[in-house]
Simulated scan of single mutants.
Amino acid sequence: MASLRTAAPCTSTNTRCSSGRAASVSCRIPSLTYLPGRRAAPRLVKYDCTSERPFVAVRSLFDNDKDGNDYGDRIFAALPFLLPLLDGLPYAKFIMLQYPFVARAFAPVAPLMYLYHSFPFAPFLVFLAIYNGIVNNTSLPRFVRYHAMQAVLLDVLLIIPQVILNDVWKAPGDEVGLQAYILAYNTLFLFTAVCSAYGMGSSLVGLTARLPLVAEAADAQVRDL
Results as ranks from 00 to 15, higher is better:
residue 92 A to L: 09
residue 32 L to E: 15
residue 41 A to I: 11
residue 58 V to A: 06
residue 75 I to G: 12
residue 52 E to Y: 15
residue 27 C to R: 07
residue 27 C to E: 06
residue 88 G to M: 09
residue 44 L to N: 06
residue 65 D to Q: 10
residue 52 E to F: 15
residue 45 V to L: 15
residue 105 A to P: 03
residue 60 S to P: 01
residue 44 L to C: 01
residue 47 Y to R: 05
residue 60 S to Q: 11
residue 57 A to D: 04
residue 94 F to G: 01
residue 62 F to L: 12
residue 84 P to E: 14
residue 70 D to Q: 05
residue 83 L to Y: 13
residue 26 S to Q: 09
residue 83 L to R: 04
residue 82 L to F: 14
residue 63 D to H: 13
residue 107 A to N: 05
residue 91 Y to E: 06
residue 56 V to R: 12
residue 100 P to I: 02
residue 102 V to I: 15
residue 74 R to P: 05
residue 32 L to V: 13
residue 104 R to I: 01
residue 45 V to P: 00
residue 78 A to V: 03
residue 81 F to Q: 10
residue 61 L to C: 04
residue 73 D to Y: 00
residue 51 S to Q: 04
residue 67 D to C: 09
residue 46 K to V: 04
residue 59 R to C: 03
residue 78 A to E: 10
residue 42 P to H: 13
residue 112 L to P: 00
residue 31 S to I: 07
residue 89 L to Q: 11
residue 46 K to Y: 00
residue 82 L to E: 14
residue 97 L to M: 09
residue 36 P to R: 03
residue 79 L to Q: 13
residue 83 L to S: 08
residue 63 D to A: 13
residue 28 R to A: 04
residue 75 I to Y: 11
residue 67 D to M: 10
residue 93 K to C: 07
residue 71 Y to E: 13
residue 46 K to F: 05
residue 26 S to P: 00
residue 28 R to N: 01
residue 82 L to A: 14
residue 108 P to G: 07
residue 73 D to G: 11
residue 35 L to K: 13
residue 110 A to Q: 12
residue 55 F to H: 08
residue 89 L to R: 10
residue 81 F to I: 09
residue 34 Y to K: 09
residue 40 A to D: 10
residue 35 L to Q: 14
residue 66 K to N: 08
residue 42 P to R: 15
residue 58 V to H: 10
residue 96 M to P: 01
residue 49 C to M: 04
residue 46 K to Q: 12
residue 34 Y to C: 00
residue 70 D to S: 11
residue 110 A to R: 07
residue 35 L to S: 13
residue 48 D to T: 03
residue 64 N to K: 06
residue 28 R to M: 05
residue 36 P to A: 00
residue 98 Q to E: 03
residue 91 Y to F: 14
residue 89 L to I: 15
residue 49 C to D: 03
residue 62 F to Y: 13
residue 111 P to Q: 02
residue 27 C to G: 02
residue 89 L to A: 12
residue 62 F to M: 11
residue 50 T to K: 07
residue 39 R to A: 12
residue 105 A to T: 05
residue 100 P to H: 08
residue 112 L to I: 07
residue 107 A to S: 07
residue 112 L to N: 00
residue 76 F to E: 11
residue 86 L to R: 03
residue 37 G to D: 13
residue 54 P to S: 02
residue 51 S to K: 01
residue 98 Q to C: 02
residue 76 F to D: 09
residue 38 R to V: 06
residue 65 D to W: 09
residue 50 T to F: 08
residue 79 L to R: 08
residue 46 K to C: 05
residue 56 V to E: 05
residue 108 P to F: 02
